[in-house]
Design a binder for these strands. Structure first.
Length: 888
RNA sequence: GCCGGGAUGGCGGAAUCGGUAGACGCAGGGGAUUUAAAAUCCCCCGGGGUAAUCCCCGUGUGGGUUCGAGUCCCACUCCCGGCACCA
């Protein structure tokens, strides 16, 4: 054993050893399976940084613990390698997206290998491999066959300057990511997946995940799906039914107008019917509204009267119809009934267009607090003869109306429903409408269908053909994959780059054999990642997406680990696709991820100049001071000094604040990087990378090495069993570590698990205990260390011949140490309180009775005085914890 | 605005069920070793008072429940996420 810890040699040696042993190969079929998965990365560059590592370090620790618990592990890795950055790189550097992507993958893979993460590399794939996207295309066809993929004209984000469609993620604060131009809506026919068909199941099955997924992710998904029970009400505008959705059918008699969305489903029918005089005005407004970016809209309510009227289903009144952009075209029915008295948005709209305000819901007379709430919401100032008056306890109050009353109450002026409570009225009105055939109770969801078309090159082509004679025809399954052609120009032109490739676009119709065109769009990359965890169970299958036997043998993923930012994207899409495949009979299970852990971010502080839009080095700074809570300084530029601020943000290449892993691992080793990340903070929490974290990890590993070197020098040899007759303190310390580390591991508390190893390490001192028991303690320590610092543990395992001692080639085939029988602590220190105030502590035999403790307390040299000559009123004794004596 | 999460020493954090607040680490201080430095090892390290012994205060703020509150309840402040004209 060398005197100095040399991670480079050690880590290389054991990485090679594990590979030769095929330690990470997932057996087929598994006996006792455990599937650990970290969200696979987008290969965004050649180098990994500390931010990436956190995800993999957590996953690897889990995998190694489960390995030591005797499970057959599936722990795969691959690449989410389609996506926009590859095209941007092509435009910027002139490298083909494919070349750029695959060389990044090389970089990522070799760095992950150098970190010693326990992946089964035989199962690796990239979503941009034709052998993979062939099956992504098959998935698309499967959805199409099941009526879950459809085409519709939709309003998409459009940058008028770049003349291109933008993906949602390219729209930053309502502006184009690249040129900062406000984004507008453009109508395009696109492919959608009908995820809304699954809204109810996606919501309901969240109950199954309760306790296994972070509560916050479940809540975010519930909100995102946004189930809302309400009533659909049909207002007939002569022959045209205007359907509205409302949760407050009780306010139906307060309707004074109807608003339809400029991009809603009824707008075209309305435009057809408006009279020639106002047609131009209305059309202009609709155009205008669609060109206005959402952020510009929020200021004040706008709209236009269509000249049309609809009939109130109960009163028969004529209700004017407006087009207004505060109504969302994609939610509910794309039209609302305007009740200014009971909805603040309708109120604001009514004010602007001088529409009447009719109050129909009032708080009950005997409920003072809701009456107070009513006046607070509605009345500006009490004055006579103004717009609104209410009689309350025989007095008449008049006031100017300030806003809407959105609370519930008792109905007035509501025909046959007058006198009912809001909830009762909602029920009865719903029933009546149903009888009348003019709507009824219904459920609406916030969730929208999933737009999957992208006018992009670097993605999986949509396997559809457009034939003039036959319409939309799917590509026959045996012709998959529809290969991405090689092209040169990736400059966006407002349509897919594939449109410019005649040999791709022009094809023949599979149905009639006539000339036809391929769909020019590619799929959203979230489609790629919505089923990759299934492909890992059968990655080389060239006849199917995966074989149901293999998938069912490994699924569901037992532990999924990733960032919380995917709560309402990837994690919903993956659940949806899993359910579809379940319904198609390909999967036994309909939830993909049995347990989810969301790790926190790795943050990094840095100096940033907003004017230069770049990171500033410490050396360029001067006049650094603290203003309020903000650290500021200056740096010189040709234009004079610029202010520089200290920011703490997520590590990312674009901010230039990364700590690259390559050099770190070269200098300090993979084990140090892992320990640093895991010890710094609990893994679910964000933390800022600092040099102190690096130091603590390196100190610890060096201390481990020195301690074992000293044991070796002293001739200590590893032992399987302890000698229970001596070294009580050591036995207790080891047992405490075993119990503590196991407990912490089960709750992902890696930081405290490592701190318990540090405490145990402090006991492994030559001379303090017998060599036999030190050798046993060392052996236990190595096995507890293994999930966190696998290379170091494997080295010490062999250095102390634990392989032959325990009959296993590797520490990872030995079980995680079990708590010892019969090692109990004989004494314990408990807290002493007098009248509830902590006065010190006392050491008592374990299991001492209250009387024994009291006797010891009376005789105690320091604490005895508190009891001397006083009467004991009450004693609260919590064995092992404290004793509280109440005296007078 | 609505829905989550959080606030503990100089710093990262610990305290699992209401039971000795500050484990473990970083920084700092003192000592040993060394010609010296680095490295290493040992000790101290929330604040205030005190000669000592001890005493008082202390987990964002203000109240409450309890023998006992970082932990539970009510009100509030600030920070960090998510959603946001969803009818």
């Amino acid at each position: 054993m060398e005197k100095d810890y040399n991670p480079r040699d050690i880590e290389r040696r054991w990485q090679r050893f594990w590979e030769e042993l095929k330690l990470y190969r997932a057996p087929e079929p598994p006996r006792r399976k455990y599937y650990v998965l970290e969200m696979f990365p987008y290969p965004s560059g050649k180098d990994l940084h500390m931010g990436h590592l956190k995800n993999y370090a957590i996953g690897d620790t889990v995998a190694r613990v489960k390995m030591m618990e005797g499970y057959d592990i599936l722990h795969p890795m691959g690449w989410d390698s389609f996506g926009l950055p590859a095209e941007n790189a092509a435009i910027k550097f002139g490298v083909h997206p494919k070349e750029w992507t695959y060389s990044n993958i090389e970089g990522f893979r070799s760095q992950l290998k150098r970190l010693g993460i326990s992946y089964d590399w035989d199962r690796e794939f990239a979503t941009s491999d034709p052998e993979y996207y062939r099956w992504t295309q098959r998935l698309f066809l499967l959805l199409y066959e099941r009526g879950l993929a459809y085409r519709k004209g939709g309003w998409v984000n459009w940058c008028p300057k770049c003349k291109t469609v933008l993906a949602n993620e390219q729209v930053i604060d309502g502006r184009c990511e690249r040129c900062k131009t406000p984004v507008v809506k453009k109508k395009l026919t696109q492919w959608y997946f009908k995820i809304t068909d699954y809204a109810e199941r996606l919501l309901r099955d969240l109950d199954k995940l309760e306790g296994h997924w972070p509560e916050s992710v479940i809540k975010q998904q519930r909100n995102w799906i946004g189930r809302s029970e309400g009533t659909e009400i049909v207002f007939m505008a002569e022959d045209l039914p205007i359907r509205v959705f409302t949760t407050r059918a009780d306010t139906l008699f307060g309707v004074t107008f109807i608003s339809v969305a400029p991009d809603g489903p009824v707008i075209d029918a309305i435009l057809e019917r408006v009279s020639p005089e106002v047609r131009e005005l209305v059309e202009e407004y609709v155009q205008q509204a669609l060109l206005t970016s959402p952020e510009e809209r929020t200021e004040s309510k706008t709209g236009v009267f269509t000249g049309l009227y609809a009939t109130h289903p109960f009163t028969g009144e004529s209700i004017p119809i407006y087009v207004a952009d505060y109504v969302l075209g994609e939610y509910g029915t794309g039209a609302v009934m305007g009740v200014p008295a009971h909805d603040q948005r309708d109120y604001e709209f009514a004010r602007r267009f001088n529409l009447p305000i009719k109050f129909v819901v009032f708080p009950p007379d005997d409920d003072e607090s809701s009456l107070e709430e009513f006046f607070k919401a509605v009345c500006d100032e009490v004055s006579d003869g103004e717009e609104f008056s209410i009689e309350y306890r025989g007095r008449r109050f008049s006031c100017r109306i300030k806003g809407a009353y959105e609370g519930k109450g008792i109905l007035k002026n509501s025909g046959e429903f007058t006198g009912l409570t809001s909830d009762e009225a909602i029920r009865r009105i719903g029933e009546r409408l149903r009888e009348m055939g003019l709507g009824g109770p219904t459920v609406s969801y916030r969730l929208r269908d999933w737009l999957v078309s992208r006018q992009r090159y670097w993605g999986a082509p949509i396997p559809m053909i457009h034939c003039e004679r036959c319409g939309v025809v799917p590509v026959p399954e045996e012709e998959l994959p529809v290969l991405l052609p090689e092209i040169e120009n990736f400059q966006p032109e407002g349509r897919s780059p594939l449109e410019n490739v005649p040999e791709f676009i022009n094809t023949t119709c599979p149905k009639c054999g006539g000339p036809a065109r391929r769909d020019p769009d590619t799929m959203d990359t979230f489609v790629d990642s919505s089923w990759y965890f299934l492909r890992f169970t059968d990655p080389h299958n060239d006849r199917q997406m995966f074989s149901p036997e293999r998938a069912n043998a490994w699924m569901p993923v037992d532990q999924y680990i990733g960032g919380a930012e995917h709560a309402t994207k990837h994690l919903i899409y993956a659940r949806f696709i899993t359910k579809v495949l379940h319904d198609a009979g390909l999967l036994a299970y309909d939830e993909p991820f049995a347990n989810l852990f969301t790790q926190g971010l790795v943050l990094m502080g840095f100096w940033w100049c907003k004017e230069c839009n770049r990171r500033i080095d410490e050396e360029e700074l001067y006049d650094v001071k603290v203003v309020g809570t903000q650290k500021v300084g200056y740096h010189d530029t040709p234009e004079g000094p610029h202010e520089v601020v200290w920011l703490v943000e997520m590590m990312s290449k674009s901010r230039g604040n990364v700590v690259p892993l390559g050099p770190f691992v070269e200098e300090y080793g993979a084990d140090a990087a892992r320990i640093a990340i895991l010890f710094a903070a609990p893994p679910e929490q964000d933390f800022e990378w600092t040099d102190a974290i690096r130091r603590s990890a390196i100190n610890f590993l060096n201390r481990v090495w020195r301690t074992f070197y000293a044991l070796r020098e002293a001739g200590v040899e590893a032992r399987v069993e302890p000698d229970l007759s001596s070294d009580r303190e050591l036995l207790v310390a080891v047992n405490r570590a075993i119990v503590g580390v196991r407990e912490d591991l089960s709750r992902f508390k890696f930081n405290t698990a490592i701190s318990k190893l540090m405490v145990l390490l402090g006991e492994l001192k030559v001379g303090r205990y017998s060599h036999g028991n030190l050798g046993w303690a060392a052996q236990i320590f190595v096995r507890l260390l293994a999930p966190f610092a696998p290379h170091m543990a494997e080295e010490l395992f062999h250095e102390f011949s634990m392989d032959s001692l325990l009959g296993e080639k590797t520490v990872f085939r030995t079980p995680l140490p079990e708590p010892l029988e019969g090692v109990v602590e004989e004494e314990e220190s408990i807290g002493v309180q007098i009248n509830g105030k902590t006065r010190g502590s006392i050491t008592v035999p374990k299991g001492a009775t209250e009387d024994e403790v009291l006797r010891m307390l009376r005789e105690h040299p320091k604490l005895g005085k508190y009891l001397a000559g006083r009467e004991i009123r009450r004693v609260i004794y919590v064995p092992g914890r404290l004793i509280n004596v109440i005296v007078v």
